[in-house]
């Protein structure tokens, strides 16, 4: 029953995302706007760009994941599909929350991971650091979705969530940003990135265990 609900929701979310093709491309377009604008701002010097590349790519990925957050639960709140998650008290809403966050990650996180090599090339990131960059994005972007989902759920009952949303997300993603860019920088300088990636994985585990609980509780309060 739970699995059936989760797959049904995932299929529908992905179908809706495909139908809004343009909106789903937004994170990617945003990522590349940043990647293109920054060299125009700071100059094309390869050394400078290579040294700021990890931070640039990660900050862009982070801001890109913020874009879709406002729409993560709100349309479902407005058309009445969100409250159906609680009807009858049979489907564990936590599982549905996880499903929704997973589809958010598939739509906003995965394209960023896939196009990261291109962004890395454009910013002259040393090619040795590329696997670490990809790995850090693979571990880190789900955390962004989980944390963003939590902020989105908390602000759901308010009228203007977007400013509030970014204030809530920013403190929560500080550790992710530090460990992820630390990993890529270490790899670019020829050191081992294991410690950073290990800490990043620990953050992911923590976020996977705790964020859905808090998100579900916040959604529940907000539909009441």
């Amino acid at each position: 029953m739970t699995v059936a609900r989760m797959t049904a929701l995932l299929r529908r979310d992905l179908r809706l995302a495909l139908r809004h093709g343009g909106e789903s491309l937004m994170p990617l377009i945003f990522l590349f706007s940043v990647i293109i604008l920054v060299p125009l701002g700071v100059g094309p010097g390869p050394n400078l760009l290579a040294s700021i590349a990890p931070g640039m790519i990660w900050v862009a990925a982070l801001l890109a994941s913020l874009l879709a957050l406002e729409q993560l639960f709100r349309p479902d709140l407005e058309d009445g599909t969100l409250e159906q998650w609680w009807v009858g008290g049979t489907a564990p809403p936590g599982a549905l929350v996880v499903t929704r966050l997973f589809s958010h990650w598939l739509v906003t996180g995965v394209p960023v991971i896939l196009f990261a090599p291109l962004a890395a090339q454009m910013l002259y990131l040393p090619s040795d650091a590329l696997p670490t960059l990809m790995l850090s994005l693979l571990i880190g972007t789900p955390v962004l979705s989980l944390v963003g989902g939590l902020a989105s759920a908390l602000t759901l009952g308010t009228n203007r969530g977007s400013v509030l949303l970014s204030i809530l997300v920013f403190p929560m993603v500080v550790p992710v940003l530090i460990f992820a860019t630390g990993a890529v920088t270490a790899a670019a300088e020829g050191f081992s990135a294991r410690a950073h990636l290990g800490l990043l994985t620990a953050l992911l585990i923590l976020a996977v265990t705790l964020a859905p609980l808090a998100t579900t509780a916040a959604l529940r309060l907000n539909i009441e």
Binding site: L9, D79, Q84
Partner: peptide, 27 residues
Amino acid sequence: PVAFLGHHAAVKGDLSCRENLEFKRRF
């Protein structure tokens, strides 16, 4: 098991009627 039909019909505007029903059945 209960079903609830509220003020909003809990259907997705961007999906066709059939797709909405299909979702409901799977869900």
